[in-house]
Amino acid sequence: MKTNITKALRLTLVCLVFFSGVYTMAVWAVAQLVPGQGKGFTIEENGKKYHVNVGQAFTQDKYFWSRPSAVDYNAAGSGGSNLGPSNPEHLAEVQARIEHFLEHNPDVTKPEIPSDLVTSSGGGLDPHISVQGAKVQAQRVAKIRGLNLESVNKLIDRHIEPPLWGIFGTKRINVLQLNLALDKIKG
């Protein structure tokens, strides 16, 4: 037992230095050589910096809305609603979101709303919406900005991120990038 303790202690210290220290610093060193220097992917627009992968709240009518977030897009405290599928509170919340959406998008009928727009994401920071989620908002955005619907729809089409290598996973739209492009059109 006693010999085990000294061995365990020494071996643990070696592991600490090696795995917490050397391994971490090796990955960190690689980070200094790659785009973004390990600070996550950011873009600059009009002198402002944005994290491309981290969702932002978009709630104004002139922008495409992002998904509901249980943590209000707090990127320093991610989390989901953790509400169960049969929870009346959850169902009432979804119902309220549908009504809120219809109120702000009077040209849209209920069966056109996709579920991702009225449910909150896992981490509360989802940067994407579905393609239908953008299309269903096009009319509102076009009207409020005085753009024609076709050009807004074209803008959406240009921002569709295809599945990985064309065949794996989902199609989606990065809300931040779509909205930044939208602001440019108004110019």
């Binding site: 998904r67 989901g80 609603s81 953790n82 509400l83 599928p85 959850h90 979804v94 579920s115 991702d116 449910t119 909150s120 994401s121 896992g122 981490g123 989802d126 940067p127 994407h128 919406i129 579905s130 989620g133 996973g169 989902t170 989606r172």
Partner: peptide, 8 residues
């Protein structure tokens, strides 16, 4: 089912 899930 998209509650608690990510679009990507």
């Amino acid at each position: 089912s998209m509650e608690g899930k990510e679009v990507r």
